[in-house]
């Protein structure tokens, strides 16, 4: 077997296949909605596809790290919205400047990440349970601080409205895309070129072996959850800039889109396998699907049904591929 066929083989058995399928799905969906959707090929639609990919994108980048360690994060959505709420309180009630308020969003999410990390890494709770707890705590606690009031960030026209330009320049340039690409690169370097990334994969692959190699895997897990918190914070900032008014209830369920994006992109829920490029593809599959179904005039509930179907198909591909690898 020469090197080339080896390489093709490894693409077919690695995450490569799933990425190819995700690209295929993206193209097929795009064509489908162009034909059957109303006004799908308009700038407004494109803008709303981008809008929903920013915050899901940041969430999913963080979630990818966690899933590769063999964990899961059920709290990312509520941490994002909860932190955005606190930032809103800081701006509206505590009288902080907009910059400080946004830093508070980031800090709050990092603290929730640290909290998750301590629960999982230090106290040894299963990630599912730990982050489920944090899901309730983050949304509940932040709503309490916000006195269950909707928090409003400055409008484009008001004094601090410039901050909305982190998503769109006044001339309509999608600035959010630049941030997403930038932080995608940061995350990519973190995952592929640093010790943290190496241990992220190693822990997901065989945590005991990592321990026996003299590495304190728990410390690294805490760090992974902190990194995840950081990306939830970025998602919170972008979320605030995109939607301006933050209601506590909107936090529920966002984490599922983030997990779904990872899975569609080929990140294995059993850990050790996954890539950020796959995750970003997954994010776009989801946001195209969300926006496209709206353009067909279907009720929102159909989005949920279809995203569920796509997630199941993605996992099915993974399962079939695993079987094939084993049989070969």
């Amino acid at each position: 077997m020469n090197r080339k066929s080896l390489k093709i083989n490894s693409i077919m058995t690695g995450t490569g296949l799933q990425k190819l399928i995700a690209i295929g799905a993206l193209v097929v969906l795009y064509i489908f909605f162009s034909i059957f959707g109303n006004h799908f090929l308009t700038q407004d639609t494109f803008v709303s596809i981008l809008d929903s990919s920013y915050y899901i994108g940041f969430l999913a980048i963080g979630t990818t790290f966690v899933i590769i360690t063999g964990g899961i994060d059920l709290s990312s959505g509520t941490v994002m919205v909860g932190s955005a709420l606190i930032g809103g309180v800081a701006y509206n009630v505590w009288g902080c400047s907009i910059v400080v308020s946004l830093l508070i969003v980031l800090l709050s999410a990092i603290l929730f990440g640290l909290f998750n990390g301590i629960l999982v890494g230090k106290l040894g709770l299963p990630p599912f349970i730990a982050t489920l707890g944090t899901q309730f705590i983050s949304l509940g606690y932040c709503s309490v601080i916000a006195k269950v009031q909707t928090q409003t960030y400055p409008r484009l026209t008001s004094e601090d409205g410039w901050f909305k330009q982190i998503v769109y320049k006044n001339n309509g340039f999608p600035m959010g895309m630049i941030w997403l690409i930038l932080f995608f690169l940061v995350a990519w370097i973190l995952l592929n070129k640093t010790v943290l990334g190496r241990y992220t994969y190693a822990i997901g692959s065989n945590e005991e072996a990592v321990e026996l190699s003299g590495i304190k895997s728990n410390h690294w897990k805490i760090l992974v959850y902190v990194v995840n918190g950081f990306f939830c914070g970025l998602a919170g900032i972008i979320y605030a800039a995109t939607f301006s008014s933050i209601t506590p209830q909107t936090g529920n369920g966002q984490e599922m889109y983030s997990i779904a994006a990872c899975v569609i992109g080929g990140t294995s829920l059993s850990g050790g396998v996954g890539s950020l490029s796959g995750t970003i593809l997954g994010v776009f599959v989801i946001s195209v699907l969300k926006t496209g179904l709206l353009s067909m005039g279907l009720p929102v509930q159909w989005q949920q049904v279809l995203i569920g179907v796509v997630v199941l198909l993605a996992v099915l591909v993974d399962v079939i591929r695993m079987k094939k690898t084993r049989a070969a």
Binding site: Y201, A202, N206
Partner: peptide
Amino acid sequence: NMMNDLTVAQNIFIGRE
């Protein structure tokens, strides 16, 4: 006690990269 999803080299130098 190896990490199956890592390469041979990554396994050998785990903790000493």
